[in-house]
Design a protein around this nucleic acid. Structure first.
Length: 809
RNA sequence: GCCCGUGUGGCGGAACUGGCAGACGCGCAGGACUUAAAAUCCUGUUGUAGUGAUACAGUACCGGUUCGAUUCCGGUCACGGGCACCA
């Protein structure tokens, strides 16, 4: 009898062989295919089976591409700077450099258990000075182009992480990392002018083969809107206030105006009667945190005492202050049309302000308006010259009309804000800037990069708005690179996203000390063809990376302006809540983390790889169930025994086997191409069941077994190799070509189809696939026999699919 | 509140452009082998009624289009995700 399946021996053997003779080689002739994983941050918890899943998916895809003749770039690295690593270090009471190195070592060991075809020569680590030299270099280039600038402003501040945060890092008013309520803090910050790329970031989404969901999230995040700025004169003064509106068609319906409490004219609009109330309102608003401002939907406000003149009809409208108007969007001031905007309506009701309907709803004026009519469709009313126009068309034309009339202009606005880039933390790339009292901000000269992160005993965040680096006077005090006079270093560090925004460019030339990436190599091996990772980075990493790539394209570092052609988001692997049985995210606090280590030991790497795929559709979340591993192991054992038995049998190729083999190739290839990886595994099981059946009879031929070995290799590489070798091959299975199939074997001549009466299946019948309708109907009726009663009204035959007889009782 | 996604056996999930709903696997039940257990193999497994072939019902719910709907359309509910006063 055949040798029993021994996953430990087989996997050890092939891992050693691959180590000596890598299977993914660049012979300079093959076309490249760049398949990238989102690189992990090395947390102390190590990997769980959820992380594994993404890596298995990308490895299956990489190996499939190899078998299709590509040289596959499939690298791995470490996103090791940033808050998670630093917070972990603080918790454990060790230096982040030390804990990071330990965590990297542990996770690398775990990742090697996957037996993926990673090219470890390419490995990068964002905390390596040789790497962050270039992270700093990019910052300097941005500074030179005016895209990195310093600004004092109220920014999002996490009181627990004790650092400023980017807008993208604030989720529902809470810190993305630790969940604390985010407050505002006035700090001098480095900013990156991502808004300069807003239009390109928006327009180029069309070029990308990405999930629609992610594209939509980025579109919404950029939030481009079209409208007009309109100038309203302040009654009795020379000054005017400019508002931004997307609904200039409703200008005749503007019955009041609201400014953000932070608006520069806010105080000056008050008179003796209102001054106390206005100043108090402004003060109260300044105390509100962003969370309060998000949660208090109840409108508040105060009348300034001043009026503005509607430039279109000369109407005098009161000017109010309210915190529902955002200071940093548009002009910080809005014209209010309560009849056609929900928020303005609510405000008008609360403060008893007039409501004028200017768009007819269903051709009429609404009698007792109970909610705003917000559709831009209907005929204009109460609108002077504009009466009778269609509001949707007017909305589009009004900005230009206003521009011609001379009291405003057509304009666009974005929700996207510039990127707050300073972190008041230790564990990040130092921002390479020197503050000189005479020369201002001077970048560290490029030949002096990297500017090393100094070693320090106390790396805890200070909470004062200063980075821990500020305490290291030796380091802070320096000389100005320009004039040589005493100067001080910038002490803030970069956010975690700095390194991850460009790391994928570095893999293909990771040891280059002269350039970020050699241009020739970049042209040859970049950009990324397939990027695989979780959806949680939709507006963070994936937006930042696109921005960086466009910038590097602009300064000639690379010749493409989109980093990732295709994106695949894999679903999470959830655990089960022990009490409710509901699916929950795997987390340490819930105690439902499943580590891959034990599973690999007990069932083997191949078994876990197959199970990670079999568990459910790769793009959806799925639930881990340990018991499923037994099913996979049974399948592997059955397959293993089947192959070994057939090697002894040495069966002949028959017509039946030819058919099965071609169908197997067709099924697996189609499902793999459409990323339906869970059903690929199902198909393997189904075909294996057939082979087991045939083995009990005449056996399965060698060619079919070879085909099976190749098909299986991307999924279970050790087994694929072992079977390939058992079948007499000296070279690796990955030197083989992915098999093709012949269409002629996919369809039977005799097919079995369903026979229905009034759309309900009542019988089945075997017919030749080419017979005409008449013959098919006759065969169908015969199969139905006495079940067919009543008058036949209609006879339907869809060739190869169905026979349906419609009868009337 | 707005936008997007999902809803199929005890469980994970299949079903190509509308064409035999429940592939494949888990679990469970019965059987074989065994002194016994594990492992392995075989059989069954949507529900209801019936010994039975079979009949009827059935893809969250209500309705529509169609010879025929898990699939298309309209409405409702539930769950998940994104955005959240962006004028």
């Amino acid at each position: 009898m055949a040798i029993p399946y021994n996953h430990r021996a087989i996997e050890k053997k092939w891992r050693e062989r691959w180590e000596q003779n890598p299977v993914n080689v660049n012979d300079g002739k093959k076309e490249k295919y760049y398949c990238l994983d989102m690189f992990p941050y090395p947390s102390g918890n190590g990997l769980h089976v959820g992380h594994w899943r993404g890596y298995v998916i990308s490895d299956v895809w990489s190996r499939y591409k190899m078998l299709n003749g590509y040289y596959v770039i499939h690298p791995m690295g470490w996103d090791a700077f940033g808050l998670p690593a630093e917070n972990y270090a603080i918790k454990m009471g060790v230096h982040p450099a030390k804990s990071t190195a330990e965590n990297v070592a542990n996770i690398k060991r775990q990742i090697k258990e996957i037996s993926a075809v990673y090219d470890w020569d390419m490995e990068v680590n964002t905390t390596d000075p040789k790497f962050y030299k270039w992270t700093q270099w990019i910052f300097v280039q941005m500074f030179k182009k005016g895209l990195a600038y310093e600004k004092e402003m109220p920014i999002n501040w996490c009181p627990s992480c004790k650092t400023g945060l980017a807008n993208e890092e604030v989720v529902n008013g809470k810190c993305e990392r630790c969940g604390s309520d985010v407050t505002k803090k006035n700090l001098k910050q480095w900013m990156l002018k991502i808004t300069a790329y807003a239009d390109r970031l928006l327009d180029d989404l069309d070029k990308l083969d990405w999930p629609e969901k992610v594209k939509k999230m980025q579109t919404d995040w950029i939030g481009k809107s079209h409208g007009a700025e309109v100038n309203f004169k302040i009654d009795g003064k020379d000054e005017s206030i400019t508002v931004y509106t997307t609904r200039p068609d409703t200008l005749y319906g503007a019955t009041f105006m609201v400014l953000a409490p932070e608006h520069e004219l806010a105080k000056s609009l008050a008179n003796d009667d209102t001054r106390a109330a206005v100043e108090d309102y402004i003060y109260q608003a300044s105390l509100k945190s962003s969370v309060d401002r998000l949660q208090d939907k109840e409108k508040t406000g105060v009348f300034t005492g001043s009026y503005a003149i509607n430039p279109l009809n000369g109407a005098k409208v009161p000017i109010w202050l309210s915190d529902y108007v955002l200071a940093d969007y548009g002009t910080g001031a809005i014209m209010c049309v309560p009849a056609h905007d929900d928020r303005d309506f609510e405000f008008a009701k609360k403060f008893n302000l007039p409501i004028i309907q200017v768009i007819a709803k269903d051709g009429k004026e609404i009698e007792n308006m109970e909610e705003a009519y917000t559709d831009a469709s209907g005929t204009m009313i109460n609108s002077g010259d504009w009466n009778g126009l269609e509001s949707g068309e007017l909305k589009l034309k009004a900005p230009e009309m206003i521009e011609k009339m001379g009291f405003g202009k057509k304009t666009t606005n974005y929700k996207l804000r510039d990127w707050v880039f300073s972190r008041q933390r230790y564990w990040g790339e130092p921002i390479p800037i020197v503050h000189c009292p005479d020369c201002g901000n001077v970048p560290v000269p490029e030949e002096e990069l990297p500017l090393l992160l100094p070693d320090v005993k106390s790396y805890q965040p200070t909470g004062t708005g200063e980075s821990p680096l500020a305490d290291i006077t030796d380091w802070v005090n320096t000389t100005c690179p320009k004039c040589g006079k005493p100067a001080k270093r910038e002490t803030n560090t970069m956010p975690q996203w700095a390194g991850s925004s460009w790391y994928f460019l570095r893999y293909v030339d990771s040891k280059n000390d002269e350039e970020l990436v050699n241009r020739e190599k970049a042209d040859k091996y970049l950009p990324v063809d397939m990027y695989i990772g979780g959806v949680e980075h939709a507006v963070l990493h994936l937006l930042y990376s696109r921005f960086y790539t466009k910038f590097l394209n602009d300064i000639g570092v690379v010749d493409f302006d989109e980093p990732f052609k295709k994106l695949f988001n894999q679903g999470m692997v959830c655990g089960r809540d022990k009490e409710t049985g509901a699916a929950t995210k795997m987390s340490k606090s819930l105690g439902n983390i499943v580590s891959p280590d034990d599973t690999v030991r007990d069932y083997g790497c191949d078994a876990l790889r197959l199970y990670e795929l079999f568990i459910g559709p790769p793009e959806l979340d799925s639930i881990w169930d340990d018991r499923g591993m037994d099913g996979i192991y049974r399948f592997i054992t059955r397959l293993w025994n089947m192959v070994n038995t057939n090697i002894e049998k040495d069966a002949k190729e028959t017509e039946e086997l030819l058919k099965i083999r071609n169908r197997m190739v067709s099924d697996i290839t189609k499902r793999l191409e459409s990323f339906s990886l869970n059903t690929v595994i199902s198909a393997f099981m189904e075909y294996n069941n057939k082979f087991v059946e045939l083995t009990a009879k005449d056996g399965v031929d060698k060619k079919t077994l070879e085909t099976l070995a190749i098909l299986l290799a991307p999924f279970a590489p050790h087994i694929g190799e072992e079977i390939w070798e058992l079948l007499g091959h000296k070279e690796s299975v990955f030197t083989a070509k992915w098999p093709t199939f012949d269409e002629k074997y996919l369809v039977d001549d005799e097919i079995e189809i369903a026979v229905q009466i009034n759309g309900k299946t009542k019988a089945t019948v075997s017919i030749n696939k080419d017979i005409d309708k008449e013959a098919a109907i006759a065969a169908g009726k015969e199969a139905l026999g006495s079940k067919l009663t009543g008058t036949v009204v209609k006879e339907i035959y869809v060739p190869g699919r169905i026979i349906n007889i419609v009868v009337k009782a």
